[in-house]
Design a protein around this nucleic acid. Structure first.
Lengths: 170, 170
DNA sequence: TTCCTTGCAAATCCTTTGCAAGGGT
DNA sequence: ACCCTTGCAAAGGATTTGCAAGGAA
């Protein structure tokens, strides 16, 4: 699986006469290792740095832009000003997100719209769909329990910011 | 309709011993007037300023936070670093977005998941859904034509940034 | 008096950019 | 030699925060 991704990445890069540098490899490998989570650029930077310590943050951003353009990645935005990245999984199709307004932790659920539906939309609107993503907002089981217990939504919300920024999920 | 919104807003505010100040009213009215578009905080600020010229940008942000917490609004993020706001429409149900990767212009399409589906998700995951939003990415009719004609995706992409930031849609 | 609310300016956070240097081809 | 790529530091843009002042309850 990783080999597949690396290989297709290498091919894509070659098309544009780009190189597979150690920096880019470190970013890709990190994205692969953490493919079940949703990494912010900063989380990604820190983790990839462990593979290639000279890595600079700007390079991470540039690499992400490149990978995005190559269609290797997907950007997801759950929270204001926080962009998270995930490897696009060409095998298993799309998944959607359950974003908890309590703890901010995004769960994933599998699901795919029938191709018929997408075609129908294109037919009706002229809009050609290349990708899609659905977010469900609400409260996860854990937070529902917490809120039921002490009703302290606000505290949970503050926690969430902390969790996301301080990389507590790693 | 506007009266309904204002009234429910006033009630919500009262609950928390908050006030319906002219600033908040100006923001709300602007959101209502532009309910078919998707306003960035800055667009909102400029338009609301016409109603209440002393309005400050920080107040707009604070008001948006408040309204968000009250569930009056929805945040949508189509593009990195650009948060857009729209009044939540409790009458007509949900709508989804067709986000064009060419011109960046978001179209809306109506659509609603059957409540059965939402319940099923909650049942399976324990996640209680309070809101949801689906984005379809691709190319709108106009951009598809442009790309077919001269293949200049990049130029279109640059245009898009300009359009969004320079408030050309107003 | 109390405390919600505000405008302004400063601070902060995330992301992009300019530039000179490094390194394949 | 050419040009892709990089790290660093500076710039940029959006959002938040500190603070003193205004104003309703």
């Amino acid at each position: 699986m990783l080999d597949d991704i690396l290989h297709s990445c290498y091919q894509e890069l070659e098309k544009g006469h780009y190189r597979l540098t150690p920096q880019r490899e470190a970013v890709l490998l990190t994205l692969y290792r953490e493919r079940d989570g949703h990494l912010t650029s900063y989380e990604l930077f820190n983790k990839a740095k462990k593979i290639y310590p000279e890595l600079g943050l700007a390079t991470v951003y540039r690499t992400l832009d490149l990978f995005l353009e190559m269609g290797l990645l997907r950007e997801v935005q759950f929270d204001k000003g926080l962009t998270q990245y995930e490897l696009r999984d060409h095998q298993d199709g799309h998944h959607h997100h359950l974003v908890c307004k309590g703890c901010g932790h995004p769960q994933e659920i599998d699901g795919i719209f029938p191709k018929k539906l997408l075609d129908l939309i294109t037919e009706e609107t002229g809009f050609l769909i290349t990708d899609y993503c659905c977010q469900f907002y609400g409260y996860c089981e854990k937070c529902r329990t917490n809120i039921a217990q002490d009703g302290k939504k606000t505290k949970v919300k503050e926690l969430m910011r902390g969790e996301v920024f301080n990389d507590a999920r790693s």
